[in-house]
Write a protein that binds this DNA or RNA. Structure first.
Lengths: 226, 226
DNA sequence: CCAAAAGTGTTCGACTTACACCCATGT
DNA sequence: ACATGGGTGTAAGTCGAACACTTTTGG
C-alpha cells in the first residue's frame, strides 16, 4: 500500500467492478460457480467471480474478461443483471458493482482457478457456503431473474449443448422449476415454440429406445415468447 | 480546471452517475421529462435529468436527489433500469451511468428548473428532440421495460392519482399500448386483479353519469401478476 | 331532449391440463 | 425377458376475445 497514487480527480470517485453469477445444471441440480478468495477482504471466503473495470473497457467486456481470468470459463451466455452500490458493501473503498448473470451447459465449462482465485468450486444453489460482500443478495437477484425469464424466453436452452433430446430439455425445466412436468404436454409445448428442429440424428444412451436429437433453429440466441 | 485534485487512487476510476427517465401521461400521450443542459458538454441540448453519485450515498438516493434538484420532482415511483458504461459515452472522462426509470401522475409533478438545468420540459415520446450522450438509447430501454411490465405488474397504476375511475385507468392502458381496448373486458380484468377497491365516492365530471372512484387496496405498491 | 361517458353478461374459440399405453434398445 | 427412458392423442376445463344496450348526468 506504499505505491504512488497518480490517478487524481477533483471529486471522489467510486471504484466500479463487475460480479458474475454463473449457473449451470449438473447432477440434476442448479449449481453456481464460486471462487475462494485469496486476498483480503474476506480472504478464504467464497465469492462470485468478478473484478475491477478497466478504464478503457466496456462493462460487458469486463465481465467476460474477469470470468475468463478467474475461472477459465468463456463464450457463454452473459446478461447484465442489476447494479449494487450500497455505501458499505466493500470495506476497502466505495465500490459500485455491476452484476451479471451467466448460463452454460455443464459440458462446456473448463473451470480452472485463475489469478486472484485460490480455488473455484460448484455449489448447489440450495447449499451455498457463507459468501463475501453482498454476494448472497446478488445471487438471490440472479436466481429470481432466471426463474422469471423461464416464463417468457427460451433462456433455459442455454443450459444445453448444441444438440439435445427433449428428455434432457424437460429435465432442465424440471430442475429449474423444482416440479415434475407432464411429458406429453411438455413436448407439445416445446415443439409449438417453433424454436427447435430435429437434426435427424438420434442418440443411443443406455438400454432403451434411442432419443431424437434437436437443435435451436436460430443458432444460440434467446427468443422472447408471447 | 485549475482547481486541486485531491482525490487520488492507485488505479484510474470511472465516474458514476445516475440518469432518470421520468414518464407521465398528459394530454392522452406518454411524455418524458427532459432538461436543457446549461453546461458543456452538449450545452443547450436536451438530456435526461441526472448527475454524479456522491461518495457516501446509495444509488437510489442519488437518483432521487438528482431528480429533485434538477426538476423539483420528488416522491415518485423509481426503479433501477440498466447500467450504461460504453467507453466513449461521455467526452469528458469515463462515466458509468446507472439509469433509472420513474413514473408519476401528471398532477403530482411540480416541475421547475433547478441548479444545473437551464430549463425543463415535457416531450411526447414520439416527438423527442435531439438528445445528449447516449440518452436516446437509455430512453428506448426504459420504454421497452415500461411496456414489458404492463403485462405482468400493476405498474401502470403509478400514472394515476390516489383515486381514479375505471375510465381513467383504461385510458392509461390505451395510451401505453397505443390500442383501443374493450370496455367490458377491461373492467372485468381490472376488477379481477384484486388490486383495487371502490372508495364509495363518485366523481362528477361533465354532462354524463358520474363515475365510481377506486383506489389501490395495498397503498402505492406495484404488484406482480401471474 | 340531447350528448356524453358510465355501467353491465353471454357466447365462442383457443389454450392449458390431465391422463395411459406401446416402442426400441442394451443387458 | 425385462428394465429403461422414448414417443404418442384425446377430452375437459379454463381463460381471453368479441359484442350492444341501458343509465345517469349537465346543459
Amino acid at each position: 500500500m506504499s505505491q504512488p497514487k497518480p490517478h487524481c480527480y477533483a471529486y471522489p470517485h467510486p471504484a466500479v467492478t463487475t460480479d458474475i453469477a454463473v449457473f449451470t445444471i449438473r447432477e440434476d441440480a442448479l449449481q453456481l460457480l464460486l471462487i475462494r478468495r485469496g486476498n483480503p477482504p474476506y480472504a478464504g471466503a467464497w465469492a462470485l467471480p468478478g473484478g475491477f473495470l478497466d478504464i478503457d473497457e466496456d462493462l460487458d467486456t469486463c465481465a467476460a474478461r474477469e470470468l475468463a481470468e478467474e475461472t477459465g470459463v468463456r463464450d457463454i451466455y452473459l446478461e447484465q443483471l442489476y447494479t449494487f452500490g450500497a455505501v458499505g458493501r466493500d470495506p476497502r473503498e466505495r465500490v459500485v458493482s455491476v452484476a451479471y448473470f451467466a448460463l452454460a451447459p455443464a459440458g462446456r465449462l473448463a473451470v480452472q482457478a485463475g489469478d486472484d482465485a485460490a480455488a473455484t468450486g460448484w455449489f448447489r444453489l440450495d447449499a451455498l457456503p457463507e459468501l463475501a460482500f453482498d454476494h448472497a443478495e446478488i445471487i438471490a437477484a440472479a436466481h429470481r431473474r432466471l426463474v422469471a425469464k423461464l416464463d417468457y424466453s427460451t433462456i433455459a436452452f442455454q443450459f444445453l449443448p448444441e444438440t439435445f433430446t427433449l428428455g434432457e430439455l424437460q429435465r432442465v425445466y424440471e430442475t429449474l422449476l423444482d416440479a415434475e412436468l407432464d411429458k406429453r404436454n411438455f413436448r407439445k409445448w416445446a415443439l409449438a415454440l417453433e424454436q427447435i428442429e430435429a437434426t435427424g440424428e438420434v442418440r443411443r444412451r443406455g438400454s432403451h429406445r434411442p432419443a431424437r436429437l434437436y437443435r435451436l433453429t436460430d443458432r444460440k440466441q434467446v427468443a422472447f415468447l408471447r
